[in-house]
Design a binder for these strands. Structure first.
Length: 463
RNA sequence: GGUGCGGUGGCGGAGAGGCUACGCACCGGCCUGCAAAGCCGAGUACACCGGUUCGAAUCCGGUCCGCACCUCCA
């Protein structure tokens, strides 16, 4: 089985052929750390995390790099707004980002370079671009001269004429062409800045990814990931910079081989935006839903499709996951310790190898579950395989042995619940069902649902 | 205006010329003191109009509708 990926540069699904099968190299544009991560950031992280997992089933070594943008106009704004130093803002949100991602099962990248740690590399790259006559200095800015790169527009499939026609922003007076973009710009005294051959200033947005991907991975590397909205201008400009710095007019493949873009998350069919006030933060979501539920929701549609986020999706994922969790809860943990050399289900893996078709992969797991749910059958192999498949998706099913929901309840509440359940047990023994049902109603009013099972009465707090 | 993606059953969501996708919800049954859970089973679909074909949700032409990017954005 080979892995196929949709490459947004060539606009076709292609077999993934690594540059060096001993070491796969992936880069993803990470977050700008000036606020809590939202569900769109999470989709990118979850999808690339899954891509890495999938590649690891086939290749021994996969190096994944995802940057942190910690110098940016938005951060400066946040610093003024929150009246806190820049460093404090970026450190805070960087930390929160990693914590939130961890909770939805995203592993930390092998390298998580920060832009501010790579200013020197950026300056060097800008120097090379100036040497190659692909950039110019104007009014204390260094700008990339788009007309010097013949492949410009190859990713977003735009001709220069189209861009000019569609250009809605005012052309900066210092620009030769409206589509030229900033590599280095001057900083005011109160803004973050670094010494450079072009004066005190800071980098433009795009240069950091070109500098850090080359530094951490070397070029060309295998896969470049990011949200679909980054294709233009960010990724287009990355290609232009990297392919002009290395050698003038290098083709896009000399930077990276495959471009992997995930679709947008919308809310009620509309894009999340500050003006609409519909930004859903992971941090808020995590107080209501578990990490695996959020993760499963994000994987319930194909990564390239737009995903319309809603409580319905979360509720559905919650139920789906519960079905599997209930099943695995009944299996003693020793069961998993003995036979750890289980295999992936073929249909499951094939679906994921086919451009990360998670809905089809999930369907195959349901089929697998049908085979295994009859407790009379001894399908140890399939059960182990099922657990392993979920693990590949980043969802752990066989570890939550203790009542997860109890975390949402205080100790004194637990005591009350416990006592009421005891009381109800006694009533049931005496066949006083009216009293038993009254107690159940009472618990329900406390938002506690109970279930009578062979092992006794279980309770769950509703969110 | 340019570029790209899409419209599938009540909802979510794959598939891509003939074969049940799948899940959630709903309905019927089993189980249960009753619930819940679990199990078994049934139903409902491919935006519209033409065309190609023995056969189209899938291919071709057209129409309508939605979304995104072209400005910071995952």
């Amino acid at each position: 089985m080979n892995i196929f990926l949709y490459d947004s540069l060539s606009k076709e699904k292609k077999e993934f052929v690594p540059i060096d099968s001993k070491k796969i190299r992936i880069y993803a544009c990470g977050p700008t750390v000036y606020n809590y991560a939202h569900i769109g950031n999470a989709r990118m992280s979850v999808v690339t995390d899954l891509l890495v997992n999938i590649l690891k089933t086939k290749f021994k070594k996969v190096v994944f790099v995802s940057n942190i943008t910690d110098v940016d106009d938005k951060i400066i704004e946040a610093s003024i707004r929150e009246k806190k130093p820049i460093k404090e803002i970026t450190t805070k949100y960087h930390k929160i980002y990693n914590e939130d991602m961890k909770r939805i099962g995203v592993k930390k990248p092998d390298f998580q370079p920060k832009a501010t740690d790579h200013i020197q590399e950026m300056i060097e790259m800008i120097n090379k671009l100036l040497e190659n006559n692909c950039a110019y200095i104007e009014d204390n800015h260094v700008l990339f001269d788009v007309s010097k790169y013949e492949y410009y527009g190859c990713l977003s499939k735009r001709t220069k004429e189209e861009q000019i026609a569609g250009n809605r922003i005012d052309v900066g007076e210092y620009k030769k062409n409206s589509e030229d973009f900033v590599l280095w710009k001057p900083s005011k005294k109160n803004e973050p800045g670094w010494k450079s051959p072009w004066g005190y200033g800071r980098p433009g947005w795009h240069i950091e990814c070109s500098a850090m991907s080359e530094k951490c991975l070397g070029i060309p590397f295998d896969i470049h990931c990011g949200g679909i909205d980054l294709t233009f201008p960010h990724h287009e400009n990355e290609i232009a910079q990297s392919c002009s710095a290395f050698k003038k007019n290098s083709d896009p493949q000399s930077f990276c081989k495959y471009w992997f873009h995930n679709g947008f998350v919308t809310v009620d069919g509309e894009k999340m935006s500050k003006s609409l006030g519909n930004i859903t933060l992971i941090n808020d979501l995590l107080s209501k839903y578990s990490g695996p539920v959020i993760r499963l929701s994000l994987l319930s549609s194909h990564y390239r499709q737009p995903l319309d986020w809603s409580t319905k999706i979360l509720e559905q994922s919650k139920k789906t996951l519960k079905k599997f969790e209930n099943f695995f809860d009944k299996i003693p943990s020793e069961f998993f310790l003995k036979d750890s050399n289980s295999n992936f289900d073929n249909e499951f893996l094939n679906s994921l190898y086919d451009d990360l078709n998670t809905p089809r992969a999930l369907a195959s797991l349901n089929k697998l579950f049908d085979k295994v749910k009859d407790p009379k059958k001894d399908d140890k192999k399939i059960i182990l395989s099922l657990a392993k498949c979920f693990q590949l998706l980043g969802i752990n099913l066989n570890k939550n042995k203790n009542n997860d929901e109890s975390n949402f309840v205080t100790k004194s509440e637990k005591k009350i619940i416990f006592d009421l359940i005891q009381e109800r047990e006694e009533a049931r023994k005496l066949k006083d069902f009216e009293r038993a049902d009254n107690i159940r109603d009472k618990l329900k009013k406390m938002n506690i649902n109970i279930e009578d099972s062979v092992e006794g009465t279980k309770w769950i707090k509703n969110e």
